[in-house]
Design a protein around this nucleic acid. Sequence first.
DNA 1: AAGTAATCCTGATCGC
DNA 2: TGCGATCAGGATTACT
Length: 295
Amino acid sequence: MPELPEVEVVRRGVSRWAAGRTVTDVEVLDARSTRRHDGGPVAFADALTGMTLAAPERRGKYLWIPLTGPEGSGTLAVVVHLGMSGQLLVNAPSDPDPKHLRIRIGLHAEQGEEPRELRFVDQRIFGGMFLAPLIPATDHPEQSLPAPVAHVARDPLDPWFEPEAVHQRLVRRRTGLKRALLDQTLVSGIGNIYADEALWQARLHFDRPTGTLDRTDTVGVLEAVTAVMAKALEQGGTSFDSLYVNVNGESGYFSRSLKVYGLAGQPCQRCGGPIVREKFMNRSSHFCPRCQRRQ
DNA sequence: AAGTAATCCTGATCGC
DNA sequence: TGCGATCAGGATTACT
Protein backbone atom coordinates (compact mmCIF):
# COMPACT_ATOMS: atom_id res chain seq x y z
CA MET A 1 0.00 0.00 0.00
CA PRO A 2 2.01 2.90 -1.28
CA GLU A 3 2.15 5.91 0.99
CA LEU A 4 4.43 8.92 0.76
CA PRO A 5 7.83 7.15 1.11
CA GLU A 6 7.03 4.60 -1.57
CA VAL A 7 5.83 7.31 -3.94
CA GLU A 8 8.99 9.30 -3.29
CA VAL A 9 11.08 6.23 -4.14
CA VAL A 10 9.18 5.97 -7.42
CA ARG A 11 9.72 9.68 -8.08
CA ARG A 12 13.46 9.30 -7.69
CA GLY A 13 13.49 6.27 -9.93
CA VAL A 14 11.53 8.00 -12.66
CA SER A 15 13.81 11.00 -12.35
CA ARG A 16 16.85 8.79 -12.81
CA TRP A 17 15.59 6.58 -15.63
CA ALA A 18 12.82 8.34 -17.55
CA ALA A 19 13.19 12.11 -17.21
CA GLY A 20 14.38 13.89 -20.33
CA ARG A 21 12.99 11.24 -22.66
CA THR A 22 10.37 11.83 -25.33
CA VAL A 23 7.23 9.72 -25.58
CA THR A 24 7.10 7.72 -28.81
CA ASP A 25 3.81 5.91 -28.27
CA VAL A 26 1.23 5.19 -25.61
CA GLU A 27 -0.82 2.07 -25.16
CA VAL A 28 -3.67 2.01 -22.66
CA LEU A 29 -4.43 -1.63 -22.01
CA ASP A 30 -7.21 -0.97 -19.50
CA ALA A 31 -9.35 2.14 -19.90
CA ARG A 32 -10.17 2.17 -16.20
CA SER A 33 -6.60 3.24 -15.45
CA THR A 34 -7.25 6.54 -17.30
CA ARG A 35 -10.77 7.07 -15.93
CA ARG A 36 -9.72 10.41 -14.46
CA HIS A 37 -8.55 11.72 -17.81
CA ASP A 38 -11.06 13.95 -19.59
CA GLY A 39 -11.77 12.37 -22.94
CA GLY A 40 -10.74 8.86 -22.05
CA PRO A 41 -7.85 6.60 -23.03
CA VAL A 42 -7.52 7.67 -26.66
CA ALA A 43 -7.32 11.36 -25.82
CA PHE A 44 -4.79 10.52 -23.12
CA ALA A 45 -2.57 8.59 -25.51
CA ASP A 46 -2.83 11.20 -28.27
CA ALA A 47 -2.00 14.13 -26.00
CA LEU A 48 0.94 12.40 -24.34
CA THR A 49 2.57 11.13 -27.51
CA GLY A 50 5.41 13.37 -28.68
CA MET A 51 5.80 15.15 -25.34
CA THR A 52 9.05 15.15 -23.37
CA LEU A 53 9.14 14.18 -19.70
CA ALA A 54 10.60 16.79 -17.34
CA ALA A 55 11.73 16.18 -13.76
CA PRO A 56 9.00 14.44 -11.74
CA GLU A 57 7.49 16.11 -8.68
CA ARG A 58 5.40 14.90 -5.78
CA ARG A 59 2.96 16.10 -3.18
CA GLY A 60 1.67 13.58 -0.67
CA LYS A 61 0.89 10.43 -2.60
CA TYR A 62 0.47 12.22 -5.92
CA LEU A 63 3.29 12.12 -8.44
CA TRP A 64 3.40 14.18 -11.61
CA ILE A 65 5.75 14.64 -14.53
CA PRO A 66 5.62 18.07 -16.21
CA LEU A 67 5.63 17.83 -19.99
CA THR A 68 7.42 19.91 -22.55
CA GLY A 69 6.50 19.92 -26.20
CA PRO A 70 6.05 21.95 -29.32
CA GLU A 71 2.79 23.44 -28.05
CA GLY A 72 4.16 24.90 -24.86
CA SER A 73 6.39 23.99 -21.98
CA GLY A 74 5.53 23.28 -18.39
CA THR A 75 1.82 23.96 -18.70
CA LEU A 76 0.74 20.33 -18.69
CA ALA A 77 1.71 17.31 -16.61
CA VAL A 78 1.01 13.61 -16.55
CA VAL A 79 -0.31 12.83 -13.08
CA VAL A 80 0.09 9.43 -11.43
CA HIS A 81 -1.61 8.00 -8.38
CA LEU A 82 -0.67 4.48 -7.36
CA GLY A 83 -3.86 3.85 -5.40
CA MET A 84 -3.69 0.61 -3.47
CA SER A 85 -1.63 -1.59 -5.72
CA GLY A 86 -0.08 0.60 -8.39
CA GLN A 87 3.51 0.38 -9.58
CA LEU A 88 5.53 2.42 -12.04
CA LEU A 89 8.27 0.50 -13.76
CA VAL A 90 10.95 1.50 -16.23
CA ASN A 91 11.86 -1.42 -18.44
CA ALA A 92 13.54 -2.40 -21.65
CA PRO A 93 10.86 -2.89 -24.32
CA SER A 94 11.97 -6.51 -24.68
CA ASP A 95 11.17 -7.28 -21.04
CA PRO A 96 8.07 -9.48 -20.82
CA ASP A 97 4.82 -7.76 -19.89
CA PRO A 98 4.04 -8.13 -16.21
CA LYS A 99 0.66 -9.31 -15.04
CA HIS A 100 -1.76 -6.37 -14.58
CA LEU A 101 0.07 -4.10 -17.01
CA ARG A 102 -2.41 -1.27 -17.65
CA ILE A 103 -0.50 1.47 -19.48
CA ARG A 104 2.63 1.30 -21.61
CA ILE A 105 4.48 4.51 -22.45
CA GLY A 106 7.24 4.09 -25.03
CA LEU A 107 10.30 6.31 -24.49
CA HIS A 108 12.61 7.35 -27.33
CA ALA A 109 16.18 6.07 -27.43
CA GLU A 110 18.54 8.72 -26.20
CA GLN A 111 22.17 9.48 -27.21
CA GLY A 112 23.22 5.97 -28.12
CA GLU A 113 21.13 4.36 -25.40
CA GLU A 114 18.33 1.91 -25.95
CA PRO A 115 14.64 2.83 -25.97
CA ARG A 116 12.77 2.28 -22.73
CA GLU A 117 9.23 1.86 -21.50
CA LEU A 118 7.47 3.48 -18.60
CA ARG A 119 4.92 0.96 -17.40
CA PHE A 120 1.95 1.41 -15.11
CA VAL A 121 1.01 -1.82 -13.40
CA ASP A 122 -1.99 -1.98 -11.09
CA GLN A 123 -3.79 -5.07 -9.91
CA ARG A 124 -6.77 -3.43 -8.26
CA ILE A 125 -7.14 -0.36 -10.47
CA PHE A 126 -7.66 2.10 -7.63
CA GLY A 127 -4.81 4.11 -9.09
CA GLY A 128 -4.43 5.70 -12.49
CA MET A 129 -2.83 8.25 -14.80
CA PHE A 130 -4.24 11.41 -16.36
CA LEU A 131 -3.12 14.66 -17.92
CA ALA A 132 -3.86 17.95 -16.22
CA PRO A 133 -2.87 21.61 -16.55
CA LEU A 134 -0.30 22.99 -14.14
CA ILE A 135 -1.42 25.96 -12.04
CA PRO A 136 0.41 28.12 -9.47
CA ALA A 137 0.21 26.98 -5.85
CA THR A 138 -1.96 29.42 -3.90
CA ASP A 139 0.44 29.73 -0.95
CA HIS A 140 3.66 29.88 -3.01
CA PRO A 141 2.79 30.97 -6.57
CA GLU A 142 6.34 30.34 -7.80
CA GLN A 143 5.54 26.66 -7.40
CA SER A 144 3.15 24.91 -9.76
CA LEU A 145 1.08 21.80 -9.41
CA PRO A 146 -1.63 19.99 -11.38
CA ALA A 147 -5.09 21.52 -10.92
CA PRO A 148 -6.68 18.29 -9.61
CA VAL A 149 -3.92 18.10 -6.95
CA ALA A 150 -4.42 21.67 -5.73
CA HIS A 151 -6.71 20.59 -2.87
CA VAL A 152 -4.02 18.32 -1.42
CA ALA A 153 -2.22 19.80 1.58
CA ARG A 154 1.55 19.96 1.84
CA ASP A 155 3.15 16.82 3.26
CA PRO A 156 5.53 16.58 6.24
CA LEU A 157 8.58 16.31 3.97
CA ASP A 158 7.68 19.49 2.05
CA PRO A 159 10.07 22.40 2.76
CA TRP A 160 7.03 24.67 3.13
CA PHE A 161 5.17 22.34 5.47
CA GLU A 162 3.80 24.28 8.47
CA PRO A 163 3.01 22.20 11.58
CA GLU A 164 1.52 25.23 13.33
CA ALA A 165 -1.03 25.75 10.56
CA VAL A 166 -1.92 22.04 10.67
CA HIS A 167 -2.42 22.27 14.43
CA GLN A 168 -4.75 25.25 14.07
CA ARG A 169 -6.93 23.49 11.52
CA LEU A 170 -6.81 20.14 13.30
CA VAL A 171 -8.12 21.33 16.67
CA ARG A 172 -11.04 23.04 14.95
CA ARG A 173 -12.15 19.72 13.57
CA ARG A 174 -14.72 17.70 15.44
CA THR A 175 -13.42 14.28 14.63
CA GLY A 176 -10.93 11.60 15.71
CA LEU A 177 -7.18 12.10 15.37
CA LYS A 178 -6.55 9.29 12.89
CA ARG A 179 -9.42 10.44 10.68
CA ALA A 180 -7.76 13.84 10.58
CA LEU A 181 -4.31 12.39 9.83
CA LEU A 182 -5.75 10.44 6.89
CA ASP A 183 -7.46 13.55 5.49
CA GLN A 184 -5.20 14.60 2.62
CA THR A 185 -6.56 18.15 2.65
CA LEU A 186 -5.20 18.65 6.19
CA VAL A 187 -1.82 16.98 5.86
CA SER A 188 -0.93 14.70 2.97
CA GLY A 189 1.02 11.52 2.41
CA ILE A 190 -0.24 9.59 5.42
CA GLY A 191 -2.02 6.26 4.93
CA ASN A 192 -3.24 3.59 7.30
CA ILE A 193 0.16 2.06 7.99
CA TYR A 194 2.07 5.22 8.85
CA ALA A 195 -0.88 6.65 10.75
CA ASP A 196 -0.85 3.65 13.09
CA GLU A 197 2.93 3.73 13.40
CA ALA A 198 3.08 7.47 14.13
CA LEU A 199 0.26 7.29 16.68
CA TRP A 200 2.08 4.54 18.54
CA GLN A 201 5.28 6.55 18.45
CA ALA A 202 3.48 9.62 19.80
CA ARG A 203 1.52 7.54 22.37
CA LEU A 204 -1.82 8.88 21.16
CA HIS A 205 -5.08 6.98 20.68
CA PHE A 206 -6.40 6.80 17.11
CA ASP A 207 -9.84 8.04 18.12
CA ARG A 208 -8.69 10.83 20.40
CA PRO A 209 -10.97 13.82 19.76
CA THR A 210 -8.96 16.41 17.85
CA GLY A 211 -10.46 19.23 19.91
CA THR A 212 -8.70 17.96 23.05
CA LEU A 213 -5.20 18.06 21.53
CA ASP A 214 -2.71 20.70 22.58
CA ARG A 215 0.19 21.98 20.50
CA THR A 216 2.57 19.45 22.05
CA ASP A 217 0.31 16.57 21.02
CA THR A 218 -0.10 17.74 17.44
CA VAL A 219 3.54 18.60 16.91
CA GLY A 220 4.47 15.31 18.56
CA VAL A 221 2.41 13.20 16.22
CA LEU A 222 3.52 15.18 13.17
CA GLU A 223 7.15 14.73 14.20
CA ALA A 224 6.47 11.02 14.62
CA VAL A 225 4.99 10.89 11.12
CA THR A 226 8.04 12.65 9.74
CA ALA A 227 10.42 10.33 11.57
CA VAL A 228 8.64 7.16 10.47
CA MET A 229 8.51 8.34 6.86
CA ALA A 230 12.16 9.43 6.84
CA LYS A 231 13.18 6.04 8.20
CA ALA A 232 11.12 4.21 5.61
CA LEU A 233 12.64 6.35 2.88
CA GLU A 234 16.10 5.55 4.16
CA GLN A 235 15.41 1.85 3.87
CA GLY A 236 13.42 1.87 0.64
CA GLY A 237 15.07 4.60 -1.36
CA THR A 238 18.58 3.24 -1.40
CA SER A 239 19.76 2.29 -4.86
CA PHE A 240 18.81 2.93 -8.45
CA ASP A 241 21.74 1.21 -10.09
CA SER A 242 19.65 -1.08 -12.22
CA LEU A 243 17.15 -0.16 -14.88
CA TYR A 244 14.12 -1.07 -12.91
CA VAL A 245 12.01 1.33 -10.91
CA ASN A 246 9.66 -0.34 -8.55
CA VAL A 247 7.38 0.21 -5.69
CA ASN A 248 5.42 -2.64 -4.30
CA GLY A 249 3.34 -2.13 -1.20
CA GLU A 250 3.22 -5.83 -0.46
CA SER A 251 6.99 -6.28 -0.67
CA GLY A 252 7.35 -4.71 2.75
CA TYR A 253 10.88 -3.52 2.39
CA PHE A 254 10.37 -1.56 5.55
CA SER A 255 8.01 -3.94 7.28
CA ARG A 256 10.87 -4.95 9.55
CA SER A 257 10.64 -1.69 11.46
CA LEU A 258 6.87 -1.70 11.98
CA LYS A 259 5.82 -1.48 15.63
CA VAL A 260 2.05 -2.03 15.52
CA TYR A 261 0.72 -2.37 11.98
CA GLY A 262 -0.33 -5.95 11.30
CA LEU A 263 0.98 -7.05 14.68
CA ALA A 264 -2.25 -7.76 16.57
CA GLY A 265 -1.59 -10.06 19.50
CA GLN A 266 2.16 -9.39 19.49
CA PRO A 267 3.73 -7.72 22.54
CA CYS A 268 4.16 -3.95 22.46
CA GLN A 269 7.87 -3.16 22.20
CA ARG A 270 7.48 -0.47 24.84
CA CYS A 271 5.33 -2.02 27.58
CA GLY A 272 4.96 -5.67 26.61
CA GLY A 273 1.17 -5.54 26.51
CA PRO A 274 -0.64 -7.06 23.52
CA ILE A 275 -1.20 -4.98 20.40
CA VAL A 276 -4.90 -4.70 19.58
CA ARG A 277 -6.61 -4.42 16.21
CA GLU A 278 -9.89 -2.55 16.02
CA LYS A 279 -12.32 -1.89 13.19
CA PHE A 280 -12.15 1.67 11.98
CA MET A 281 -13.47 3.42 8.86
CA ASN A 282 -13.97 0.15 6.96
CA ARG A 283 -10.38 -0.82 7.69
CA SER A 284 -8.44 -1.45 10.88
CA SER A 285 -6.42 0.36 13.51
CA HIS A 286 -3.53 -1.27 15.32
CA PHE A 287 -2.50 0.16 18.67
CA CYS A 288 -1.33 -0.54 22.20
CA PRO A 289 -4.23 0.07 24.63
CA ARG A 290 -1.77 0.61 27.49
CA CYS A 291 0.55 3.11 25.81
CA GLN A 292 -2.17 4.85 23.81
CA ARG A 293 -5.04 5.97 26.03
CA ARG A 294 -7.93 7.87 24.54
CA GLN A 295 -7.62 10.73 27.03
C1' DA B 1 -20.42 23.51 5.67
C1' DA B 2 -18.59 19.74 7.44
C1' DG B 3 -18.46 15.08 8.59
C1' DT B 4 -19.43 10.36 7.15
C1' DA B 5 -20.83 6.47 4.31
C1' DA B 6 -20.79 4.32 -0.26
C1' DT B 7 -18.19 3.13 -4.13
C1' DC B 8 -14.67 1.40 -6.96
C1' DC B 9 -11.43 -3.11 -7.76
C1' DT B 10 -8.87 -8.05 -7.73
C1' DG B 11 -6.81 -11.82 -5.53
C1' DA B 12 -5.63 -14.22 -1.39
C1' DT B 13 -7.62 -16.54 2.30
C1' DC B 14 -11.21 -18.71 5.17
C1' DG B 15 -15.18 -21.47 6.59
C1' DC B 16 -18.25 -24.93 5.32
C1' DT C 1 -12.54 -29.61 -4.41
C1' DG C 2 -15.41 -25.82 -4.76
C1' DC C 3 -17.58 -21.73 -3.75
C1' DG C 4 -19.40 -17.79 -1.58
C1' DA C 5 -17.99 -14.49 1.98
C1' DT C 6 -14.46 -11.62 3.80
C1' DC C 7 -10.61 -8.62 3.79
C1' DA C 8 -7.02 -5.34 2.09
C1' DG C 9 -7.76 0.42 1.77
C1' DG C 10 -6.88 5.57 -1.04
C1' DA C 11 -9.62 8.95 -2.93
C1' DT C 12 -13.68 10.63 -4.99
C1' DT C 13 -18.63 10.96 -4.87
C1' DA C 14 -22.87 11.28 -2.84
C1' DC C 15 -25.27 11.81 1.07
C1' DT C 16 -26.91 13.68 5.82
